[in-house]
């Protein structure tokens, strides 16, 4: 959120829906005189005091204080939560699960490519799985894909990134 240097910004330049303006108007004495009766500087000072009391995290950052890193600032394209069905923690985990389900074929992964669909759009990965019949060694087509998404979670130590995957049966 953009921080407003309140001591230097004149009241008249603040937008009407700005919380500082709203707060200033709330503390204005009633009785027909309204906010305009107070000198603009007074309103700003009262509002600033209220805002500082009510919201310590809204205080302007000190110049020497590094900006806090978050998923929004560092990884804005990553998803903020795990989408439904994406239960595997890695591509290899999903691959092993698929191999357990398809016992009669041996599987091989192709390169990751952008699926351009799904909950994470083009930032996600799709991996086609090639299959061969174990007995004959002949081609068994591409029975499934692995779909992966990059996720970011804000933690107390900063943004934490991880992958989540699911299996998609194609044929």
């Amino acid at each position: 959120m953009q921080r407003i240097p309140m001591q230097r910004m004149p009241m008249s330049t603040l937008p009407a829906r700005n919380p500082v303006v709203v707060a200033a108007r709330l503390v204005t004495p009633s009785g027909g005189r309204g906010a305009r009766a107070l000198p603009a500087r007074s309103s700003v000072v009262v509002a600033a005091a209220l805002v500082a009391l009510a919201c310590s995290s809204c205080a302007p950052a000190r110049a020497d204080e590094p900006a806090r890193k978050t998923c929004e600032t560092e990884y804005p394209r990553h998803l903020g939560s795990t989408p439904s069905g994406y239960s595997h923690d890695s591509q290899s985990d999903a691959f092993r699960a698929l191999q357990r389900e398809l016992e009669e074929v041996s599987l091989e992964e192709e390169s990751r490519y952008s699926a351009g669909s799904g909950p994470c759009g083009s930032n996600g990965w799709q991996v086609k799985i090639r299959a061969k019949w174990k007995k004959s060694g002949t081609d068994a087509g591409r029975p499934a894909s692995l779909m992966g998404c990059p996720i970011c979670d804000d933690t107390s130590s900063g943004p934490k990134t991880f992958e989540k995957w699911r299996i998609s049966y194609d044929d």
Partner: peptide, 26 residues
């Protein structure tokens, strides 16, 4: 049917193209 030639793995762009070919056949 919907089978593709089993040639070596390609880069990500060409793999996406192969997926497009497969989808066209489907």
């Amino acid at each position: 049917e919907t089978g593709l030639v089993d040639d070596p793995d390609h880069d990500s762009a060409d793999t996406a193209f192969r997926h497009g070919l497969h989808a066209l056949l489907v």
